[in-house]
Write a protein that binds this DNA or RNA. Sequence first.
DNA 1: CATGAATGAGAATTCATTCAT
DNA 2: CATGAATGAATTCTCATTCAT
Lengths: 204, 204, 204, 204
Amino acid sequence: MDTLPDPKEQLAEARRQQILLGAARVFAEKGFHKATTRDIARAAGVSEGTIYNYFENKRDLLTAMVDQVAMDSLRQLFEAHPDDDLRQLLPALMHDRARLAMEHGLLLVPLLAEVFADEDLRQHLYRQIVLPNARRLEEYLQHQIEAGRVRPIDPVIVTRALIGALVSNMLIKLSHLDERYDRLSLDDLFQQLSTIFLDGLLAS
Amino acid sequence: MDTLPDPKEQLAEARRQQILLGAARVFAEKGFHKATTRDIARAAGVSEGTIYNYFENKRDLLTAMVDQVAMDSLRQLFEAHPDDDLRQLLPALMHDRARLAMEHGLLLVPLLAEVFADEDLRQHLYRQIVLPNARRLEEYLQHQIEAGRVRPIDPVIVTRALIGALVSNMLIKLSHLDERYDRLSLDDLFQQLSTIFLDGLLAS
Amino acid sequence: MDTLPDPKEQLAEARRQQILLGAARVFAEKGFHKATTRDIARAAGVSEGTIYNYFENKRDLLTAMVDQVAMDSLRQLFEAHPDDDLRQLLPALMHDRARLAMEHGLLLVPLLAEVFADEDLRQHLYRQIVLPNARRLEEYLQHQIEAGRVRPIDPVIVTRALIGALVSNMLIKLSHLDERYDRLSLDDLFQQLSTIFLDGLLAS
Amino acid sequence: MDTLPDPKEQLAEARRQQILLGAARVFAEKGFHKATTRDIARAAGVSEGTIYNYFENKRDLLTAMVDQVAMDSLRQLFEAHPDDDLRQLLPALMHDRARLAMEHGLLLVPLLAEVFADEDLRQHLYRQIVLPNARRLEEYLQHQIEAGRVRPIDPVIVTRALIGALVSNMLIKLSHLDERYDRLSLDDLFQQLSTIFLDGLLAS
DNA sequence: CATGAATGAGAATTCATTCAT
DNA sequence: CATGAATGAATTCTCATTCAT
């Protein structure tokens, strides 16, 4: 229904994906700057020139990746858990985002690197990925607050706090920066994070 | 007791700082990769060659900066708030880390960029800065848990969650990524973050 | 009599002209080197590949243009002014060559550029265009000298002097290099150039 | 008197000349576009990087050459022949310009090529070289016209006609485009050109 | 130690040309 | 013949690092 599968366009899209995948692999291994277009071409199984038939320049590969990840939004999640309370939603949400992180593998790390290094890319990522997804959670929280089921805390801050808490823990786990995380299952991690955010630290 | 102020060494140390400061300024403005040694030399008021009398290479400037930041540890904070409960400690801790971020200004952003891009630097930063500071909080939390004042939640996870929540919010605020943060004082931000972590989201 | 209009060949010739025209337009606008085959294909309304069905390579387009211009020779002019004396012939000749320049527009400039840059092309142009046309004037001058109506000056030198004088003035006028030429009609220009060559500078 | 010979600056100027000379040699041999920076570096006996310490980019080498040639102006000539009439001045002037052409050798040809190809360079050359030199001759002619020794013909046109006549003949001779020029001495060439411009073609 | 000119490896990008469809 | 995606050689320019002065 979206687009008729014009065979030509389909082929082009496949090529795009092929190149993007190759680039992702090389970026994940060497980081953006140390990845040469030669590396990328080789990894994607095309010639260097072909890359430029599908992307403006090397940086454009990054931007395209951001948009790629952005496609995979939270919409389905919220539709699948319409009226759940936070106790069910929060772990599910973490699982979903974690699944995304695992799918895109360590590509996330070099992507983040460039996001920090590049003002424009940072804005691009924030607007394309963070904001649209965050907004759903914000709205959900707002409803819960109005229903009296959640403390009156700024949903914007909560959302970013959640993202930060999740990302930092995932990063440490995936990068094997701290061996204590190697003995910790993702389920346990999400469970504990959920508890923190739901019930707070203080013993009641 | 540490080092007698050998006048020669003092001069050298001053020079080091001078270069580091210049580098920090340029990194903050252009990011690590777009900062040329020429820029740095100019900003520091020395010649390019002189940089290499004090630092191995350009990347070493980054490493040195990490160590610089690391010096400024949490030690004093915990000594100043020995027996405080979390309600006092948490906002103070955030203020302290935020002060650090403001002091080093947006240098943090390019620093983070390279931290993500560079495996070794990532480990270096984690071990030199994150771990030592985190450990103090972990220990503190452990004591509080044992004393029954805090829920039995893994202090390691809590600590990283706190760091992530704080860093993500600060980053958005300092980078002006989201205009809603422009109307939010740091005090309010810290207050809300503290509440989230202390009391949780759920209405009691 | 030359070639029977074989409909197939006619179509091919039309295509050739179509491509050549597109190339001329692009060359005139961007110069030879900055004109890409893609530009040319687009301007000619064909695909890049098609260009290579009609021309060996990009440079061949230039050579073909030279020959194109060469077709338009002075023959008719001399046939139309058989017995005129130099006083009539010279301005007519300048007009004719100027008309040619205007017709081919500023294509001449990038063409000249490559002529200077490319030894082979330079010879090609000299032999295909300059020599055949110049020879007619040389012969005419030779007759006039033998008839005592023109000073005994080397017709070869005179001819090149005339060409140079005409081309340099036209170039400055067409390229708007000198605003004083903007207030000068072509007629006046040719009149003055003719006077110089006919009567010389010295007051008699 | 112009500049105190600062030894450092002198060295730098020598380097500049060294690079310019190398570039001139390569340009003369291969033309501007086919000359690689590698070629130029090798010909100049420096590394590629060094070129860029003295010139903005490859094209800047051309611009610098234009200015170099421009230095060598007609001033001395007019000062040496203050009150001469055209009969002496014209051949002297041609000799002088021809000497210049010989000195800079066939560098002129690739220079001209780029002048035709590059709008900006064309203006640069016209203003830096042609205009200043032409103006002296124009003024001289104006005086002679007012004194009644030269016909009242636009000095601007005459000057460009002279330049064109000289350049075209020289180019053919130096490029060996026409074997008839191989049997013609420069002196004879200049003598005939002078006669044409002074006395005109028509037998008196 | 300070200097900054010289170095040259390295990399992104372009584009004429080919060729399978 | 027409197409245009794929190719990859070729080239300019940058910049971290060295080292003679």
